[in-house]
Each structure stands twice: as C-alpha cells, then as structure tokens.
Design a protein around this nucleic acid. Structure first.
Length: 964
RNA sequence: GCCGGUGUGGCGAAAUGGCAGACGCACAGGACUUAAAAUCCUGGGACCCUAAAAAGUCGUGCGGGUUCAAGUCCCGCCACCGGCACCA
C-alpha cells in the first residue's frame, strides 16, 4: 500500500452517494401498474411522479442482465465486476437516454461448496449461504452498481424454489407433440388402442413426458457422490473439481431436451450472439442428416438363440438398422459393426464366438470414459460369427462388435465402408476386412496418396485422358486405395438390377439411393443429433427436492406421481448428516419422517441440479414479488415482449463457461414455457456478450495456488470504486482476455484526479486535508463528520457561467460524439480514452464554461458515477441551480455543425508514399487541392523533373500524385 | 483431426481501404522541492546518418495477390488461445 496522497477524497464521496441512491431507491425499475413515489427521479424525468405507471405512460423498456453469481466463500473476484461494470455503464446510459431500465442482481445459491462445508462442519448450508450472500452484497454495493435491489432473489429462497418446483411439474405434466411441433399438456395426449389398463396408460404417458425416469448407464462421480449431466463431464472428469467419472446404470430423472434439438438449433439464427458461441451450441446439438438402412441377419444353424431381454421376446428374422450420413456409399459396405451394448449382440452371436464376444463386452464395459478416449487411437473388436445381407447387392457381410461404435448415438450400429471412412478404414486394416472404393476421388488425391501408381498411369495415358479413364485404368490394374477417401465425388461400381448410382455426384447419389431404399421399405431419410437428454437428478442435499412421490401398483411395482401444485413449496428435511453415500443413495433418504408418507408412499429423494434455479431467474426478476404466479402476464409482456427486433432480455453479459450448460438449459425451459403459453417470447436472451477472462499480473490464469489473485476489496481501499470500474473497462475490449496491471489502475486513478482538480479549488482542498487529518481516519462512526468536511472543498474559480468558445465547444462535442457512439458499440476502452483527451485539453483552458463542464460530467457519470454525482451536485449548488439527479439527466446530444472545420489538413502522397500535409479550405475544389499539393516543397523534392501522370484526390481525405 | 477466434512498440491497446501506434502504463529528461513523493512540462517504433537535428530507408506473424493506396480486402502458410473430438 502506498502512502501517497489521495488524488481526491473518493473514500468520502463513494459511501455518500451509494447511501443516497439506496435511500432514494434511485434505480428501482417500475412495472406497469406500480405507483411511482412522489419525488422519485424516474417519475420526475418522465412526468410520472406520484402516478400509477400504466403500460402506455411508461417509456420503452430495456432489460440488461448479468449472469448472477454463485456466492462462494472466497468472495468477489475481479472477473465478476468486469461484466457487472459493463452492464452498469450501459444501464446508466440507457436510463439517461430515457428508457425504463431493468437491471437486477441475485444469487445462484444452491450448490456444492456450501454442502461440502456442511459435511465438514455440520453447519447447515443455509447458514453459510446466507453469510456468503451478505459478503457478496457488501462487495457489490461498494462498487456503486445501479441494481434494483428490490428485485433481489436467491435460488434457495423458499418463495423462489417453490416456482422452480412448479416449472418442474409443468415439464412432468407435458409432452412434445411432433404433429404440432410443441409441448402440450399430457392430459391431452390420446392413448393408443392397446392401452387398456391403468398400468399401460401410465406407462404410455411416462414414455412421453418431458421429465421422465430412466434406468441407463449414467455419469457417476464417486468423489462427488452424485451423477452428472453430459455437459458437466469434460474429458471423462467432473467439470467441478476434476474428479474421475465412471459409467454406471442407475435410475435417474431425465429432461427430454432432445425433443427441442431442432428448435434450439434453428432459433440460434434469430438471436444476436457471437459466432463462436452459436457454433459451440450448434456443435453440441450436433445435427446430421442421413438415412437409416435396414440389414437382415443371415440365419445359420448355430446362431439365433431365442433370448428374451427386458421381458420382450426376440424372434427371427432379425434386422439391424444403421444410421449413415453417406447412403451413397452403401455398395461399399463390406461389414457391419454393433456397439458392444447393442441388444441384438446376445441373440445373433454364434456358439463359436460366444466366449470371445462375452470377453470383449466385459473389456469394453470396464473402460472408463477417460480410458476410452485415451485408447481411441487403437481400434479393437471381435467377430460375432453372424452375417448380414447388404440390401443393395445381396452380399453377405460379417457382423462385428467394437467399442468405436457408440450405443448412445444413432441406432448403436453402423454399416462399415472402409474405403470412405477413416475409422472403418483403420478397423478393416487391422482385421483384414475387404475394402471396396465406390466414390471416385479427384485425380490429385491419387497423386498425393499414391504417387507411384499415379506416375504409372500417367505414363500410359495420353494428355487428353479424362480423370475417369485414368481411374478406370487404375482399377483395371488391380489397384486399391491406400487411404480412406472421405470427401465427395462421383459414384462408381454402385449398380444393381434396379438402380445405378454410377457417375452421379455424391449429393445426387444420396438422394437417389435414399429414394430407392424408401420405396423398397429398406430405409428412410433421418436426422440425428449428438445432443442427449438432460440428466436432471443429483444425489445431494442442497438442491430443490422433486415434488414427486412413489407408489406401488397392484402388482407391487413402483410408479411415480406428481404432487399437486398446492403442495408446493416442498421443503427439504433437516438433517444431521449431509454426507453423500457411496452407493448413490441420496442423503435425503436418511430423513425417515420426511421420506415416508402416511399412505405408504415414499418421496423422491434425489434433488435437482444447480442449473434448475438458473434456468428461469431472469423471468422472476421481472416480477420478483409475485406470490400467485412464477411471473405475472403483464410483467412478462412488458419486460420480455418483442419491441421491434429485440425480444426477451435486451442484453445479457457473462462468461463463456456457460456456453453449452446454462445457456442451453435456459433456452430449453424457456421454449417449453413458451409452448405452454406462460411466456411471450420464444427466446430468452436477444443479445449476449461474453466478457473475456482477466488474467493475473503474470499473464497466467488467476488462481490461489499461483498466488496471483487480485482481490477487489484491496483495489477499492487504495483507489476507490470509480477508478476500479474505469480500469476494468479501460484494459481493452470487453470480450478480450487481458492481464491485470495495478499500474494501469493508477493511470485511470490519475485521470480521475485530474478531472477532480479541474473543478475544485486547490486552497480549499488543502484546508480540507488539514481538517481531515485532525478528524482522524474515516470510519462508519465519524462518517457524518467527514461528510461535513467534504463541504470544505470549494469549486475552482476557473469555472464561470460564460459562453463557451468555439474551440471549447468543438472539444466537448467531439467527446460527446465519440463517447455516445462507443457506448452504443460497447467500446468502453475507447470511450474512456476520448474523455482523457477531453480532460487533457480542458487542463489548458484558463477559464472553463459551466455548461461545458456540466455536460462532461454527464458523459463521465455512467463510468465513474460517484465522482460525477459529487461534482454535479457541487456545480448546481455553487451556481444556485435547481438540483436534479444526474442519474436521470437527459443524455447530451452532439451538434455536428460544431464539429465542422473551415480548414482541414490533408496528407499528400507521391506514388502512394506519404510526403507532406497541406492545409486547404474544407470546401476547396480539386483544382485548388491539386495546386496546393504540387506547391509543397517536400512534395516537389520527389516530383521535380518527373512527369505527373495522374492525380488522385479523395475530397477531405488525401491526395496522391503519381509520377513516372 | 474438425470448428471458432486472435497475431500491431518494452507492456495494455487505437486506427469508415487513405498521415500506423490515439489513449494509458513503464521509461528518460526537465520544472517545483532542502530532499523525496505527488503534481506540471517535454520526449519517444526500428534502422541509417549526425554533436544534435533535418532528410532518408524499413516497419502491423510469414509468403503471394488486388488497388493510385492494404494492419484493414483476396489466396496460401505459421503460431497461439478457446471449443469439440471414434457422433458413422
């Protein structure tokens, strides 16, 4: 900590204004139907003081949102305020522009750390969570953000998670109707004819619900004691903590997000997000178009064991359906591969291969996800002993199993075309399977991969040979590919009695064979997605309990049933022991009283993941106190409804880490709520910006272990909130990754000091300092006294009520223009540099016009609101003006006429090289400009004795003389 | 491997196809001071020449191209960052 003198008394100014804003509720946003208190600055600005704000009288809305933080014990990190400052600047700017700005903050407060702390100490997670929220609130408030704190929420609030549970019930009680392409209530779903019993009806509905129970291999993390969603597993390790994750079959709740794959993908085109983020979501959804093709398995004397699986009897003939994106290569399919988990494996395997197949299945099942990725280089698999018939050429092809075919994608089975697929190629090479090329590559491909063959062919052929004749020669010589050719090309050797693909380019070949397959009932066009359903239950204590109970039917089988809405909120039980169990039994199961209901049914003991609460918090902010609905119609209509192009949240700022987690989940929930008619827009976040990572001073990612973490509290003590805010924005473009530099904070701090000294009287400041020294350092107790001291500082006599000179006006209006345009484009760093330019210029003025200085404070206010408010208030009282709130003062407009120069400098080039500048009248004609350029001595050095061949004049820009 | 992004002084960074390096940091020199800090003023891409300057040459990851003119547009590479990764 330096002992240097403060640039200005930010330690008095900042608490003073934060308190004033809070008392006045200055940044409260008003909903339609609310009464605007008399004297509220918003009401004064918009003529609504003391009136009920109906939708027509309210100005246009602007909803600007931060990703709410998880209130960790470590407190605020410098990365949090980066996004928060950006949104705060824009919120303040839009307010000044006259919009009704909704800018809320809250807490994503369910989560693992509080629970782990509870396991260690026995302290209830609610206690630590509340303490952390208190600390976060203090830190965030000390930065002077203009949040509407009346809308604060926490996902752990009973009044909040009641509605999270309510939305879950909506998911549970809905299904996706492909005919109408939207979610509908499950009661409206018609039963098929064979649903004759209650059990069958129940099973049918359960198979359609958007929230359903599935018994399948899931991601189990033993260290965390819970299952995880696919999105939470990175390279076989948990996203939180980096612990190993294994596959384990468990009964879990799933959300049918795959029903929305197409909408989630298509609607990306309607929203304004960065390309990279949209691309991440597109990749995650992973749409691919192709066809399903059915192959019949050949019956041999020693295969086809008559086995029943999950109660379903299997009987021949057996058919295997595969998914392929290249149906045009079907003639090149020389074998098939099933995933080891494929349900037909046990049925078709021959006696001879029985043991090998069993061993391989065990081997594959024993691999963790991590091992599977690491071993990906080497293909493995075994022959089942069975064969299938290729439907296009009746060839008998062997059926293998291999773990490079995934059970969870497509149909869990493939046709292998080794000539045209990298993976099939490797597998075929390893196990000496046939390779038949059926797509003709460009001849250049042969030159690259098989130069010897290429030379041989070229030697034989004439110059006029076509690629086709070269390839014909190639195959005639008995050559075959030495690598897989996976691109498109013309089909070859793809012909049977009914259909020929030969000579067709890939796209047409695909269409032709698909049509033929469809006609024959052998296949159909299909679209597949990589996206899997969302695993939605966790074996944890600190999460929303599911509003579900389990009952037994007449046969003694368990079935689930939803609680009625009237039973909400369903509170979790109090526990002594929050520990997860090793077997995957949730901690809630320990609470026997809570678990067992009088009628013999039991409660669901899993809880929802942390993402549940963050899936809809942005909706709750619009109507945070509503006790009869998760959000009221009017509130949703006003804050989320379409206005021109924008819909939903107008601007959402947060980190990239949520690209395929929160941002995908929230879009999914929103679309369901939209389909069911509860919200008015199909997308929640119209525009989204990712702030870049702030690195440590050493250029490395900030982390405790590296010891390079910057604590905002420390920066605030030394430089104040305004300097902190300004620095975070001055570092560089918001979206960029950039390193922290404490010297840089000093730079903007000095800028604020220069701005301060432009206004205040140096002598009175000295008097204040002496008084402050006597009064002792600033504490909460002597805050009032210090505030009085602050009043000792008087304005500088250099500010006068005179007219501004044209030069001064020009400086000011250039600044207004730049700052306004940069705010619209979210270029905060260059906006700040424009204000620095203004201050550097204003420092040279003998006298400073009041009007100019007032306007400058308005420009500064969104960035450094405390110092701006203080100086604004002082200017008004000193000059006896009516005190108004700076926060709602109308944003200044620049006058283009003032920026017009009478004389301008133009660069002169000779042969494209800059040589001199000339001064000409702004409206000078080309002849005058040319003459002035030629008259320049520096230019003449390069033109004398040479002919000027051409003169290029771009008015108001430059002159270029071309000499020969 | 595939997709997306980024490459500009010692550092963070600016530049509607038109004077590259605004603004800030660090640095150097000066003023003020007994001294320091703070503040204020001045300087600055590299090279070459010079006592100093002027003038000149080169310069936005590398190689080409379009253009009177390219950091900016086009083609081909390289490096780094982020995401996905046996998805048929």
């Amino acid at each position: 900590m330096s002992s240097s003198r403060r640039q200005y008394p930010f330690h008095l100014i900042e608490p003073k204004w934060q308190q004033a804003w809070e008392q006045q509720q200055a940044f409260r946003a008003f909903n339609p139907g609310e009464t605007v208190p008399v004297g509220h600055p918003f009401g004064i600005r918009h003529g609504l003081s003391g009136k009920v704000a109906d939708r027509k009288s309210l100005p246009e809305k602007y909803y600007i949102l931060d990703m709410f933080p998880y209130p960790s014990g470590a407190g605020l990190h410098v990365g949090h305020p980066e996004g928060y400052t950006a949104t705060d600047i824009l919120a303040r700017y839009r307010r000044a522009c006259g919009l009704n700005v909704l800018h809320p903050m809250g807490w994503d407060s369910f989560g693992l750390p509080a629970e782990q702390y509870a396991v260690k100490t026995g302290q209830h997670p609610r206690v630590t969570t509340e303490a952390n929220i208190t600390n976060f609130t203090r830190q965030i408030k000390s930065l002077g953000f203009s949040y509407d704190w009346s809308r604060e929420l926490a996902t752990t609030d009973v009044e909040y998670f009641k509605w999270t549970q309510w939305i879950f019930l909506k998911l549970y009680n809905s299904w996706f109707n492909p005919a109408t392409n939207k979610a509908e209530p499950i009661e409206a779903l018609k039963f098929p004819a064979d649903c004759t019993t209650e059990e069958k009806k129940r099973a049918y509905r359960d198979s359609k619900r958007l929230a359903y129970v599935s018994e399948a291999p899931v991601n189990w993390c033993p260290e965390l004691g819970t299952v995880l969603a696919n999105e939470e597993v990175i390279d076989g390790k948990s996203e939180v903590g980096g612990f190993p994750v294994i596959r384990k079959p468990m009964r879990q709740w799933m959300l049918r997000i795959t029903a929305y794959a197409e909408k989630l993908l298509a609607d990306l085109d309607t929203i304004d997000w960065s390309d990279s983020l949209k691309e991440m979501q597109r990749n995650w959804i992973g749409r691919s178009e192709g066809a399903e093709v059915t192959f019949e398995v050949v019956e041999t004397p020693n295969n086809f064991k008559n086995i029943s699986q999950s109660g379903v009897q299997f009987a021949p003939p057996f058919r295997i359906t595969v998914f392929t994106t290249r149906p045009d290569t079907l003639f090149g399919a020389t074998y098939m591969v099933l995933s080891p988990e494929h349900k037909l494996v046990g049925v078709i395997t021959t006696a001879e291969q029985q043991q090998a197949v069993e061993d391989y299945k065990k081997f594959a099942a024993g691999k963790s996800d991590l091992e599977r990725t690491e071993l990906a280089k080497e293909k493995s698999g075994v022959f089942t002993g069975a064969y299938a018939i290729n439907p296009v050429n009746s060839e008998k092809i062997p059926i293998w199993i291999a773990d490079y075919v995934l059970a969870s994608y497509g149909t869990g089975a493939i046709m292998a075309v080794p000539a045209h697929d990298e993976r099939d190629w490797e597998f075929a090479k390893k196990f000496s399977l046939r390779i038949i090329p059926v797509v003709m590559p460009p001849i250049g491909w042969l030159k690259e991969h098989q130069p010897d063959e290429w030379r041989e062919l070229h030697a034989k052929e004439s110059d006029s040979s076509t690629e086709e004749s070269l390839w014909n020669g190639y195959f005639k010589l008995g050559n075959t590919f030495k690598a897989a050719y996976t691109e498109t090309g013309s089909a070859i050797r793809s012909k049977n009695d009914e259909v020929s693909l030969n000579t067709l380019p890939t796209l047409e070949a695909k269409a032709k064979i698909s049509a033929w397959l469809e006609e024959k009932g052998l296949g159909k066009k299909t679209i597949n997605y990589k996206l899997r359903d969302w695993l939605f239950s966790r074996q944890r204590y600190w999460g929303e309990p599911f509003p579900i109970i389990w009952k037994k039917d007449a046969a003694g089988n368990l079935y689930h049933e939803a609680l009625p809405e009237s039973a909400l909120p369903l509170l979790p039980p109090t526990l002594e022991d929050y520990k997860p169990t090793t077997g995957g039994e949730p901690p809630l199961a320990r609470a026997k009283d809570w678990l067992n209901l009088p009628d013999g049914s039991v409660r669901e003991t899993n809880t929802m993941p942390q993402w549940a609460g963050s899936c809809w918090y942005y909706l709750r902010y619009t109507d945070a106190k509503n006790s009869t609905a998760f959000v009221g119609k009017d509130a949703d209509n006003y804050w989320m409804a379409s206005n021109g192009k924008a819909a939903g949240v107008d601007l959402y700022v947060g980190g990239t880490e949520h690209a395929v987690l929160h941002l995908l989940y929230a879009r999914f929930w929103h679309k369901v709520l939209f389909d069911l008619g509860y919200v008015t827009t199909p997308e929640p976040f119209y525009k989204l910006v990712n702030q870049g990572l702030i690195l440590g001073e050493d250029g490395q990612k900030m982390s405790k272990s590296r010891g390079n973490v910057v604590n905002p509290d420390d920066v605030l003590v030394e430089y104040g909130a305004d300097a902190f805010r300004l620095y975070e924005m001055f570092m560089g473009p918001l979206q960029d990754t950039k390193p922290w530099n404490t010297k840089g904070v000093e730079g903007v701090y000095r800028f604020l000091g220069r701005a301060w000294r432009l206004f205040v009287d140096e002598k009175s400041e000295t008097a204040y300092e002496q008084a402050e020294a006597l009064a002792g350092s600033f504490t909460a107790e002597n805050a009032e006294k210090h505030k009085e001291l602050l009043d000792l500082i008087l304005l500088d006599g250099g500010i006068t009520d005179m007219d501004a000179t044209p030069a001064q006006l020009k400086t000011l209006h250039a600044c207004i223009k730049k700052v306004t345009e940069d705010l619209d484009g979210m270029r905060f760093n260059t906006a700040i540099s424009a204000m620095m330019v203004f201050i550097n210029e204003a420092m040279t003025w003998q006298t400073k016009p009041l009007s100019v200085m007032k306007t400058f404070l308005q420009l500064l206010a969104p960035f450094a609101p405390h110092i701006a408010e203080e100086l604004w208030a002082r200017l008004h009282s000193t000059f006896g003006l009516q005190a108004t709130s700076l926060a709602y003062a109308p944003w200044p407009k620049y006058d283009p006429a003032l920026l017009v120069e009478s004389e301008i400098e133009m660069p002169v080039q000779v042969n494209g090289k800059f040589r001199d500048t000339i001064k000409v009248a702004v409206d000078a004609d080309n002849a005058t400009i040319e003459a002035a350029a030629k008259a320049s001595e520096k230019v003449q050095v390069f033109t004398t004795g040479k002919a000027i061949k051409k003169v290029i004049i771009v008015p108001k820009r430059m002159v270029n003389l071309i000499v020969g």
